[in-house]
């Protein structure tokens, strides 16, 4: 019986997280267009529903009914599976993400995570790195110059920025003496790590922008010179899978920023339930990503590479050194 309840609880959590992750991109697209509109002094979507609230639904219906176009001469198998390959890693990341302390529902004590592994942080970074395969397969299988160039750029960018990202996190691991995400959050109860690790956060956030392929680092889909990057040839549902996975990567980076540097679900001043504090903080970072998108211009490709290798990597190593000196 105990085992049955435990299995049922895990099933419920899996379904809940999956459903939430599938739904979250819907309001995010609306939010992004609204923010874009207001920053550029226009209204954004207004026609469908109150202040365009139903716009994402209309967009979704449009994408669903579109023809699923597969280019001639493309690698059909890889072309078809690439969107799914892109979609899987963001979901896998959330297996290891804790959302709050233990809660009791109907007298049954349950933690707010799926799996509390002792290498949670490493697992998240590793799985997030698999995101790259959807991009590679999508770009290569399309058999199109623009898509291939876009996917080559994306690959180089993702590989380059994975390194400073991993290094920036080492400072946090040194301070909390653990790779377990709940331990890291608990270590921040007195003071958030952003206070000790401003440099680490700076590097992590910029590398995160690049990993999520947001402006100013969205070289992969630079509309002006590349069409739309690796998903140029995609249409309909498969295209929307790529979009969902991009939004989920942005969500992942925001969640990691909150967990590693901004105290996770620990609130300040106002006592709110842990998951609500968590959601508020994540929402702030998502807003920051969108704000950046409509504020900064795009970097050139060589600038992107030199920022990654010549600025962020040395800074992150410096951060490890400084942290080492202060810890011991």
């Amino acid at each position: 019986m105990e085992l049955m309840i435990a299995a049922a609880v895990i099933m419920v959590k899996v379904i809940l997280i999956t459903v939430i992750l599938f739904i979250v991109p819907v309001p995010l697209t609306w939010l992004e267009r609204k923010i874009a509109g207001h920053i550029q002094q226009r209204m954004g979507p207004m026609r469908v529903g109150w202040h365009g609230l139903l716009q994402p639904v209309a967009d979704g219906l449009k994408l669903l009914t579109k023809e699923d176009n597969i280019p001639d001469q493309s690698d059909r198998v890889l072309f078809k599976i690439a969107p799914f390959v892109a979609l899987v890693p963001p979901f896998m990341v959330f297996v290891a993400v804790p959302f709050g302390d233990d809660v009791s529902i109907f007298g049954y004590e349950t933690p707010l995570y799926l799996s509390d592994m002792n290498v949670g942080l490493l697992y998240i970074l590793a799985v997030a790195g698999l995101e790259i395969y959807g991009v590679i397969f999508g770009g290569w299988a399309s058999n199109s110059k623009y898509a291939l160039l876009g996917s080559l750029r994306t690959c180089a960018q993702l590989i380059s920025y994975e390194i400073p990202m991993g290094f920036a996190v080492i400072g946090v691991v040194m301070l909390s003496q653990s790779m377990n995400l709940s331990d890291i959050v608990d270590a921040q109860e007195p003071l958030w790590f952003i206070v000790y690790q401003p440099l680490g956060f700076f590097v992590f956030f910029i590398a995160g922008l690049a990993e999520a392929q947001r402006i100013p680092f969205d070289l992969a889909e630079a509309e002006g010179d590349l069409g739309a990057g690796y998903h140029t040839e995609y249409s309909g549902m498969r295209f929307s899978f790529f979009m969902i996975s991009e939004y989920l990567v942005m969500l992942t980076i925001s969640v990691l920023c909150v967990l590693l540097f901004f105290g996770g679900w620990h609130g300040v001043l106002i006592p709110l339930p842990a998951p609500i504090w968590f959601a508020l903080k994540v929402g702030f970072f998502i807003y920051l990503f969108m704000w950046f998108r409509f504020t900064f211009p795009r970097y050139r490709y060589d600038q992107l590479m030199s920022i990654g290798w010549k600025v962020l990597v040395p800074l992150s190593i410096l951060n490890i050194l400084i942290t080492g000196i202060f810890v011991y």
């Binding site: 592994m117 002792n118 290498v119 490493l122 697992y123 970074l125 590793a126 799985v127 790195g129 698999l130 790259i132 395969y133 590679i136 290569w140 291939l148 080559l152 690959c155 590989i159 994975e162």
Partner: peptide, 25 residues
């Protein structure tokens, strides 16, 4: 050994295979 598993994903799947595919493409 979850640590080894994460490293396997990180190094082999995440980095080395990507370079392979990069060259093959």
């Amino acid at each position: 050994s979850p640590f080894l598993a994460a490293v396997q994903l990180f190094v082999y799947v995440g980095a080395i295979m990507v370079l392979f595919i990069f060259v093959i493409m």
